[in-house]
Nucleic acid binder design. Structure first.
Lengths: 262, 262
DNA sequence: CTTGCCCACTCGTCTATACGAGTATGCCTG
DNA sequence: CAGGCATACTCGTATAGACGAGTGGGCAAG
């Protein structure tokens, strides 16, 4: 069926030294880029393309695997290969941790999601004391053990972010920060109540392909990188009072910063 | 040869419902993570693994292709498959465009590279007037045509970044900004001389897999995402005077921002 | 000793085939 | 009509084989 209406895809160039499966991938990519296949639309089946191009099935599958690696398409077993829809992105402003935003009570994630009409969830909460990794210890100023607060964020049921906050035990132990629910304004509000007035944050941003564990936790499609953000919060005495390690699905976020030119 | 000293890799679990090629990928990944194979080291050849696991070659190749997609290994035709070395990263501070840095004369890229002892190059310079894309036009405040300054940055011979600056013609035309070499302090220094005192920057950050063109320009290995940064410069009158669109090899950069907590 | 060729080893590409498993549809049965 | 099953279509996994092409070492000829 679906005899692959001619015109959508061209022919192969046997004289080209570009591999056949790359040529096929090129044609599909171009067709997608030009909007010949729309978001969420089904591409021709493997069998269709086998027939159209007169190649073997493995060759077609190789083409698909290229496009999957580029994050352009995704395959669904028993259904077909589809143009991957670009989910709406969440824009994170750099002032989201400004003090004035903490006064509202709700967490930044919840507030932001509500304002754009999405349904936010927080999930797999875990609060425990543990040994600090080398990296965390360095960032917090040579602490051995820390309080770790782990949680996963979902938007409309889709996991988009997994974050762990690390705090020195001498600050957090026995306070509400060590409770699953840190109360209105989150842990930053509690830190300030404890006398650690926040001065500034440092954020480090990397992008890379996810580990298998991250693929699982964030239910990532293939070809979707992660943004790895490490934020350190400093109080007015220059002490690092929290390190927050966040892994985000890169197709769900745009980070936004505002910098002075002085 | 190289009978694949037993112990490095385990056996398959035929009762597992995890696909064989995934199990092989898992074992290789774990061996790499544990340092059994070091950076740059050669993995067992396809033939070795075919023999070791008693599977067909395509199955082994599937395993390798998973690891390639994760950016863990890279194949070299005629030589073997190697653990991908992590190149040293360039750390970009958020104050790199501060006015005091402009006074030195040299561009931020050159200065930063020199301080870490790397050999910087700038390349494929192109300066021309062109039609503004929809996005650029919006960001610059509905301009139709712009001056575009394109250039590629290399570090020790490796391309790491490709950037295009867009400026409104009414500002840039006929000035030194329209020259290939914009002079000491770069275009920001020229903008200020022209009366556009810079007030602040906005930066938007995304991460995604590269397009084929980007793979080529940045000579990206498979499994390496790009960081896409769009910076808009505003003068003290609130006008957007430049938009800089930058695509960076994600394995070459860590972005760093400092934010006030107020 | 040097040059050049051959060969072994490596990954790259492609074919052909087989079976398994998830999905959707429609028909058949109760 | 409702439920369940058969079937066709989809992608997933795996095998076996073939040829091509890049690399590097060793051997042979000059």
């Amino acid at each position: 069926m679906s005899p692959l209406s001619s015109g959508l895809l061209g022919d192969l160039d046997p004289t080209s030294d570009r591999a056949v499966f790359r040529q096929i991938a090129d044609q599909l990519r171009e067709a997608i880029d030009r909007g010949r296949f729309r978001e969420g639309e089904k591409l021709p089946s493997e069998a269709d393309l086998v027939e159209h191009y007169g190649v073997s099935r493995m060759t077609v599958r190789n083409s698909f695997s290229i496009l999957q690696g580029e994050g352009l398409v995704h395959a669904e077993h028993g259904k077909g290969v589809f143009v991957r829809p670009r989910p709406p992105v969440r824009r994170l402003a750099s002032d989201r941790f400004a003090r004035r935003h903490r006064e509202q009570g709700k967490s930044a994630f919840i507030v932001e999601a509500d304002t754009v009409g999405s349904h936010p969830q927080v999930d797999s909460l875990e609060v425990k004391e543990e040994k600090a990794s080398q990296d965390i210890s360095t960032r917090l100023g040579s602490v051995r053990r820390v309080l770790a607060r782990r949680r996963r964020y979902l938007l409309d049921g889709r996991p988009v972010e997994f974050a762990t906050s690390y705090l020195p035990l001498d600050i957090a132990r026995g306070t509400q920060i060590a409770e699953p629910n840190p109360g209105p304004g989150g842990i930053y509000a509690r830190l300030e109540e404890l006398g650690h007035r926040l001065d500034h944050f440092e954020e480090e941003i990397r992008a890379r392909m996810p580990s298998p564990a991250e693929v699982k936790t964030l239910r990532l499609a293939s070809g979707v990188p992660v943004i790895h953000l490490i934020r350190t919060a400093f109080d007015t005495e220059g002490r690092a009072v929290e390190v927050c390690d966040t892994v985000m699905a890169a197709d769900a976020y745009v980070l936004s910063y505002q910098l002075p030119a002085t």
